[in-house]
């Protein structure tokens, strides 16, 4: 039952760009943001709100641009290396950030990400400042593609990754390490007394979430073809938290549902009026008021009753 819904959703996603080619970019971007929001959602399970995950998103996108400048020109290699770079950055930042909780965690993440943003915007000779850096079209497993073909390939690779990574994260969240996150949220001290190192649990979660944001950032970098410091701005981080909350943190699909909803809503709203921010904002208020568990809440509630 659940597999049918999931499979049909993915099938619809796969068919949509064939029908409306411009949607392909919007959907690729939505999936990319979905990865990053999933990273935020992982930490939300432990009750930790990060208003700084756009840093990892941007770091990985910049990573792609720098690696491409250095002569690496293979999609797979670029993806892996840039995600590793984001994970490494996550490990370094996580080392001290996971000691903090609640507002302190949120604010410190924000602070660190804004330092990163300032560096990207100010180091003109290195990052090109606010004009950013180009991300060239890489070869895919040795095959050199034209730009339109590459964008299609990128979309379907993202879609496949969404399934694979989604399943992997599902496994992680259902493992003892994943369940420990919820335990951190409910009673951290008890967890310590049970002999589980909270610090390690959170560090692993932090690195995983940074890597997820990094994967999203790399895909977004390829899709847009340009990296700008705005990727790391705090509003982008807030956007990711919003997507995570909107989609619901009850399950992995939530983040992707939230991202798809928000991107499509945005696309529709900007075509209607200059006051598109108003439409987006009002819709968000409605969703948050009437669906406190996010869109995923709709599905999981259904699950419970069909048992």
């Amino acid at each position: 039952m659940r597999t049918i819904v999931a499979a049909s959703a993915v099938l619809i996603l796969a068919v949509l760009p064939v029908a409306a080619p411009w949607l392909q970019f919007v959907l690729t971007l939505a999936i990319a943001k979905g990865f990053a929001a999933l990273g935020v959602a992982v930490l939300l399970r432990a009750g930790l709100i990060s208003i700084g995950h756009a840093m990892f998103f941007a770091a990985s996108a910049y990573g792609v641009a720098f690696l491409a400048r250095a002569g690496i020109n293979d999609l797979g290699l670029l993806l892996i290396l840039s995600v590793l770079a984001a994970a490494l950055l996550g490990a370094i930042a996580g080392l001290f950030l996971v000691r903090y909780r609640a507002i302190f965690f949120a604010m410190l993440n924000l602070a660190v990400s804004m330092v990163f943003y300032a560096l990207c915007a100010k180091l003109y000779s290195v990052t090109g400042g606010t004009d950013g850096m180009t991300v060239p079209v890489p070869a895919v497993f040795g095959v050199v593609l034209g730009e339109p073909t590459f964008k299609s390939v990128l979309f379907y690779i993202s879609l496949a990754l969404m399934l694979l990574v989604g399943l992997a994260i599902q496994r992680y969240l259902n493992s003892p390490l994943g369940h420990a996150l919820a335990a951190v949220h409910s009673n951290e001290i008890r967890l310590e007394y049970l002999g589980i190192p909270v610090w390690a649990v959170l560090l692993v979660a932090y690195v995983v979430s940074a890597a997820l944001a990094g994967l999203g950032g790399a895909i977004a970098g390829f899709a847009i073809g340009r990296v700008v410091p705005d990727f790391a701005f705090w509003t982008a981080s807030g956007h990711l938290v919003l997507i995570a909350v909107l989609g619901g943190i009850g399950g992995v699909p939530g983040a992707f549902i939230g991202a798809l909803f928000l991107e499509l809503l945005h696309s529709v709203a900007v075509t209607v009026t200059d006051a598109w921010n108003l439409i987006v904002g009002l819709t968000l208020i409605v969703v948050i008021m009437f669906l406190p568990q996010g869109f995923y809440g709709l599905f999981s509630r259904k699950e419970a009753s069909s048992l």
């Binding site: 411009w22 847009i224 705005d230 696309s267 075509t271």
Partner: peptide, 15 residues
């Protein structure tokens, strides 16, 4: 709306 939104709109209009 930033580069992402601008690109999406450009693609839509160009289509």
């Amino acid at each position: 709306q930033g580069a992402q939104g601008v690109i999406a709109e450009y693609r839509r209009l160009a289509g």
